[in-house]
Amino acid sequence: MYEFEFTRPASVAEAVAALNAEEAQALGGGQTLIPTLKQRLAMPTTLVSLSGVAEMQGIGLQDDGQLVIGGATTHAEVASGAVGTYPALAALAGQIGDPAVRNRGTLGGSLANNDPAACYPAAALGSGATIVTNTREIPADEYFQGMFTTALEEGEIVVSVKFPVPEAANYQKFVQPASRFAMVGVFAARFADGVRVAVTGASEEGVFRWTDAEAALASSFTPDAISALSVDPDGMIGDIHGTKAYRAHLVNVMTRRAVAAAV
């Protein structure tokens, strides 16, 4: 790692101020950022830890029925804390990384990084969540802008995320055998007014909505409804773990499984 200053502000305001410094970078749980720093692939002068910001912690249900989760809430806390309110989201959080990673990694960190194979982007997009930052609220549909790219401005922090809770939802993750990130992960959610299907891991553009499947599932929320559908292998990721065609195939399989398992 290159040397950097470390600060641990206690409030969002202090964190935002600290991030104004040149080449300052926010540190969530560090489960991606610290290995990245170890490879010397980033060179921040200041690392601003968000773990001490109390207002970014915790899980709560809003009056409008949306589940609000602080950006600094760990995967482990979501996995145990959202079981009663949004079980599909809790189950997804419980599949991220491994137990030790889940004790450090955070929702905000994952969404800010937007790894194309991360799980949380599928939940946020598949739920139609709203990403609440220190300056604004960003709908998930506008937030994810391609691999490792989001709508966040320099110095902008994911303070919390508001998840509408669907009637039924499920996340199916098919892991890449080495990293255990999603080779294909599909989050399918049925709401009173429609269906959302978000796919992570598969596309060169990062997480995306499979709108053809959403339309078909809106009329019949059954695996059979999408049996004949497929995503275009062009634009899927092809690498040593699987071809584009394989990932395209898995998108269909995992979507059907998610629909079948959604409760």
Binding site: G30, Q31, I34, P35, A100, V101
Partner: peptide
């Protein structure tokens, strides 16, 4: 390892298992 996967470095911080190779010492203040 250097990709926080092998777990040889697991310790408990405030009662929770963490990978001590993916946490800064100053975070454990």
């Amino acid at each position: 390892c250097d990709t926080s996967q092998c777990g040889a470095c697991v310790v408990h911080v405030d009662g929770k298992a963490v990978k001590s190779c993916a946490m800064l010492a100053l975070e454990a203040e």
